[in-house]
Design a protein around this nucleic acid. Sequence first.
RNA 1: GUGGAUGUAGCUCAGUUUGGCAGAGCACCAGGUUGUGGCCCUGGCUGUCGCGGGUUCAAAUCCCGUCAUCCACCCCA
Length: 416
Amino acid sequence: MDSPAFQPIQGMSDLAAPEIFLWQRLEAAAREVMRLWAFTEVRTPALEYTHLFTRSLGDTTDVVQKEMYTFEDRGGRSLTLRPEGTAGVIRHVSGLGAEGEGARLYYIGPMFRSERPQAGRKRQFHQLGVEAFGAPNPAADAEVIALQLQLFAAWGLQGYTLDLNTRGVPEDRAAVTHGLQEAARPHLGALCEDCRRRFETNSLRLLDCKKESCQQLVAGLPPTTQFMGEASRKYLDDVLRLLGQLGINAKVNPRLVRGLDYYVHTVWEIRHGALGAQDALAGGGRYQVALGDKTFQGVGFAIGLERAIMAVQKDNPPLAAAAPQTVAWLVALGDAAREANLQLAKQLRCAGLACGMELGARSMKAQMRAANKSGARWVIIRGENELTAGTAALKNLADGAQQDVPLAELAARLKA
RNA sequence: GUGGAUGUAGCUCAGUUUGGCAGAGCACCAGGUUGUGGCCCUGGCUGUCGCGGGUUCAAAUCCCGUCAUCCACCCCA
């Protein structure tokens, strides 16, 4: 293989044909859904000042502590390749002033996390995300969740599950932590090593330990909503009620935990069976982020596109297999015909017909083979005879039928 | 960051146990047909055996290191 210097960086890879066709199709379908739901695209820089992420994500989170690509620029300022999209969008909205209130934005682009790669996990990966700004309002949460499910419908996804939970309001947090710790304390000895550490550092994390022994203990703990105020419980109930009116049957998973500090109220996660151990296809939630002297509130989600691609390949194979095709392939015999075909191909392309042709002087057999491989429906053959007559031999590759067609009629015949 | 598996032609992989000429299928190219694809037949091209070092008369094969990929942990999308 190549020497190391010419390999991509670990966990980063090229996206090319044929998978790129599926990427393009998913993105095109998503943009159309976004238009219908009245969200507009924003493209923020991949590189931001480090403190944007430490401040918004919370500097005790794993993402900030262990996974960021951080380095200094020539002026000694600390920069970070964005590990997620929300912080940059909030920074963007913060610059809009009053115009940014109620902004409805989406983004598609690469994110960077320095984790050990595995199935469904790259160091450069891609997310499609949505952010709807505004004060907490269950209708906004329900609308954004409905939008997300609409995207999955547009992609033909079926094999996913939606889990919903609430983080409550920031004022609930101390009570939740305290309540969980008191409830778990009698079982400390039976918990796994990781969970005994989590008990101190991040007790919410006890809830989603993968070990079965821990899960059984956790199942006996009271739901976190029990430690929250009445307003937080009502907010969750309202979101569920509105989702029901939209025909969405969400189930509350009291053990669902989201990793980032900025979440308040509704959080949710979508998992898919085709994804291996990293089965989270998407995550979302309502957030509250203080930037400067202003607090930004909104609700949004992010979909992992590499994982969405895997899921579509499983749930919707026809969409995953489809490739763009040329309409016609031009075959030339002799230099004069080849030059004439270059002009003809330009005319047909300007008329909206996708054409391919061989630019070198290859045998007719080789050109026909290339035509066949291209998947074109038609072959346009021209040699001395056709040049003199002002015609082209038009052959249908499916049934082999062939006839001479005047050049003036060619485009119309190809469109038929 | 931790653990396991794997790296041989463009692709999928044999060959490694027991050191002895670098292999197959697919793909690609050409011919079989002086202007006709697919199917078929014939022929042909393709290699830093991931990289670096060591052992040996001799290394794809054994040893050490390193890089990468895959899978899992952790964590997340």
